[in-house]
Amino acid sequence: MDIGTPVTRPPDLYGRPRSDSFMQKLAAFSDNAVTRLARRSSPPGRPPATKMPVIRELVVAAKHQEAEDVVSLRLAAPAGSSDGSSDGSSDGEKLPPWQPGAHIELHLPSGRKRQYSLCGDPADRYRYRIAVRRIANGGGGSAEVHDVLGEGMRVAITGPRNAFPFAAEASVLLIAGGIGITPLLPMAREAARRGLDWRLVHTGRSRGSMPFAAELAELAAAAPGRVSIRPDDESGVPEAADLLSSSPAAGAVYCCGPAPMIDGVRRAFGGSCASALHFERFAPAPITDGRPFELQLGDTGRVLPVPYDRSALDVLHEALPDLPFSCRQGFCGTCRVRVAHGDVDHRDRRLTATERAAGAMLPCVSRAPEGERLVLEV
């Protein structure tokens, strides 16, 4: 997931705007203390341990069709975990708190791991809600949620974790594309609760494809003039400058949706009256400034060429199908490998300087200089 801030600052190695210090502190807060403690006890020559995620078993308490190809799941503590019931009622076990923008990692029965934004009410401590759009020709995770998971089934999660925190600036514009409404819906409710000057624009192919229509209608009725629903088949595909035109002066923009929409908003942001841009992607960002390099699989001597337009993870996964991965955007750490030899061009937002020096690498985003060969411990 990517988080951007004022685009007047120089871009980082990903070609994205740099985060301001406040947002960096928010994103890193949950990891720093445990990382420091783990680093002290790590054996020499190996990447220091980071905070081990807590895996929690929940039950699918409810499953609803929210739109064409979109289902929502309500997850609650299973029966027997407390003195409550299995439906996640107020007598059940409380779940860890979360703030708008947070996500959980869903551990599917097949072993796949996928991350989904929490889109329910943070005040509801007994249920988490996520929404999943079926992605044709995807990696299979969304199809598994749609076709395999049912009410009453148990499923493991890790999190919540927040890589897209809502700073609750005095004036905000929320721009959602399709399923991108999931992290922004709790932000809109929080903005309304705080009495902020806020606007929400939800775009999509058609009304039938846009989830949570009833909830957005209720929000619009309670806050006249602040919610705009813009289906492409009714009003045409909006231009990014048009979407940004409703931004309050010097306000902050939060954007989540398809990559073309995010890229368009980023390009048009400089011509808007907004002062800060934060965004989240559901797919890996395009590779920028990629150069070809090589990966060697340990002492086997097997060498894998990595082209300029592919990630090291993609190439590794073809050779090592069991290699775990999740976010593919350099912040979860699931795909971590150890580099025994070679210079790494680190592009992640997870590893500490000490971990990098010890050889840790996240191949989903990190690369190597042109022509370099990275020898991996596998």
Rank of each mutant, 00 (worst) to 15 (best):
S171D: 10
R194V: 04
N32H: 04
A131E: 10
A368G: 11
G178H: 10
L108D: 07
D12R: 00
R154H: 10
S86K: 03
I104V: 15
S117F: 06
R373M: 15
V365D: 00
R193E: 12
R114I: 07
Y116Q: 00
I179C: 09
G330D: 05
G359F: 06
G45K: 02
G159P: 05
V201M: 00
A240I: 08
R39E: 15
G264P: 04
P44I: 04
G180K: 06
L216S: 01
A136L: 15
F331V: 12
D314P: 00
H317G: 02
G333M: 01
G152Q: 14
P165C: 01
T158H: 05
R56C: 00
G101V: 12
E294T: 08
V253K: 09
R302W: 12
H202G: 06
L320A: 12
A241V: 08
G290Q: 02
V378C: 12
A222S: 07
A77I: 04
V71F: 03
S366K: 02
L295M: 07
A77M: 06
A213L: 14
M361H: 02
P231A: 03
A276E: 15
L173E: 14
A252N: 02
L106V: 13
A223I: 06
P6N: 15
I262F: 02
G236W: 05
S19C: 05
E218W: 10
R39W: 10
L351Y: 00
P321Y: 09
F164K: 01
E93D: 05
S326Q: 09
G271D: 07
G270K: 02
A357Q: 07
T334H: 03
G101H: 09
R347W: 01
L73R: 05
D121I: 05
E294L: 14
L297H: 10
G4Y: 01
G140H: 14
D83M: 07
G204Q: 06
P284R: 08
P109R: 06
D289Y: 09
P17N: 09
E370M: 09
R266P: 04
L243C: 03
S311G: 13
S41D: 04
A220D: 08
R367H: 02
L219D: 00
C332W: 06
D343S: 15
Q65K: 13
K25E: 11
L185H: 07
S21E: 14
T182N: 10
T5G: 13
E370A: 15
D147G: 15
A220L: 04
R193P: 05
L323P: 09
A250K: 13
C255N: 14
D87P: 08
G84A: 10
S117A: 14
G236K: 08
V265K: 02
H64T: 11
P292T: 12
A274W: 03
S85Q: 05
L316W: 10
L304I: 11
S228M: 06
G159V: 11
N162S: 07
S247V: 15
E218V: 13
A143H: 14
A62M: 01
Y254M: 14
I179D: 11
S81M: 14
P47N: 02
R194K: 09
V253P: 03
A358H: 09
V59C: 11
Y126M: 03
V237C: 04
V237D: 02
G120M: 10
P238T: 01
L58Q: 03
R39P: 03
R310W: 06
E105F: 04
A38F: 10
E234A: 13
P11A: 11
R56G: 01
D31W: 07
M210I: 11
L316S: 08
G342Q: 11
